[in-house]
């Protein structure tokens, strides 16, 4: 499908979950639509450990970013209070350092912490659905990916909720 222009595409700070889940679904290329993909050092190491094959996709350009140790105390306290791991914490810090950026994470606690800090956060499902709006994939392609989530990926979404999403896509874009 024809790709839309990147002028409105945001800078993304990405946690390990969406990279791993999109790679499992063969959809990592969807990330190429974003202006920049910033990967904190700790997240980079998690991916290297859990899903090194994700780095093989040459269509996407991931920027490994060293997150400064001199950290904002308030952000660190919020991250600690939500028990975020090193990768999630660095992703939140990096996102807060880039105004208007979006955090991609599939971790509920990281999303809660992001909300508490006024940061925008979405997950793998959002990236898949966005692919329809950005004309990266057809609605039919995305429905197929949604159906494959429980079979091919380690992302857990309640089955009936996935069904609801599929019905919504069909309703908005036709069968």
């Amino acid at each position: 499908m024809e790709k839309t222009e990147q002028s409105t595409a945001p800078i993304i700070v990405i946690d390990a979950g969406p990279i791993i889940h999109l790679d499992e679904l063969g959809s990592l290329q969807l990330l190429s639509d974003f202006k920049k993909l910033l990967v904190p050092d700790a997240v980079w190491h998690e991916i290297e450990h859990h899903r090194p094959s994700a780095f093989n996709d040459k269509k996407i350009s991931l920027d490994k970013i060293q997150v400064p140790q001199d950290r904002n105390a308030h952000i660190q306290i919020v991250c600690n209070s939500f028990n975020l791991d090193a990768g999630e914490t660095e992703a939140i810090i990096l996102c807060s350092n880039h105004p208007h950026s979006i955090l991609l994470t599939d971790d509920a606690a990281a999303r809660l912490a992001a909300n508490a800090l006024g940061l925008r956060a979405y997950g793998t499902i959002g990236v898949l659905l966005r692919a329809i709006r950005r004309k990266q994939l057809t609605p039919g392609d995305v429905i197929k990916k949604l159906e494959e989530i429980s079979l091919k990926s380690s992302l857990f979404v309640r089955h009936s909720l996935l069904e609801e999403i599929i019905v919504k896509v069909k309703k908005e874009y036709g069968p």
Partner: peptide
């Protein structure tokens, strides 16, 4: 709630 936010952004977001 998070999934619903994903749906909203994915299908109707501006960026």
């Amino acid at each position: 709630k998070f999934i619903k936010e994903d749906i909203e952004w994915g299908l109707r977001g501006k960026d």
